[in-house]
Amino acid sequence: SDDGKQKLNDEDTLDETEYALWKIRELKRIKQFNDEKNKYEIEKAEIDRRRNLTDMQRIQEDFKLGSDKTKMEDKTKYV
């Protein structure tokens, strides 16, 4: 197992290829962070929208999406 240690060199060269690779990683990080943040904000906006609906509107929307209670009850029937 110590062979592996000798094979891998951890001396720093700090040359341009290293810098370029780092730059790619950094850009990926920024992009991933922004993507996840956007996802969270979209979800939050959706929750806010749902909260502002009246009861009737919400039930209608549930019915459209197929997540209303009547269908849920069907699933739990005994055989």
Partner: peptide
């Protein structure tokens, strides 16, 4: 350390070695 691209040697759970960078 996101701006630090020095190499470090890491040891995986199975005993093998690998090279990462500080920012990773």
């Amino acid at each position: 350390f996101y701006a630090d691209f020095r190499k470090i040697r890491i040891r995986n759970l199975d005993g093998t070695f690998a090279i990462w960078h500080m920012d990773e």
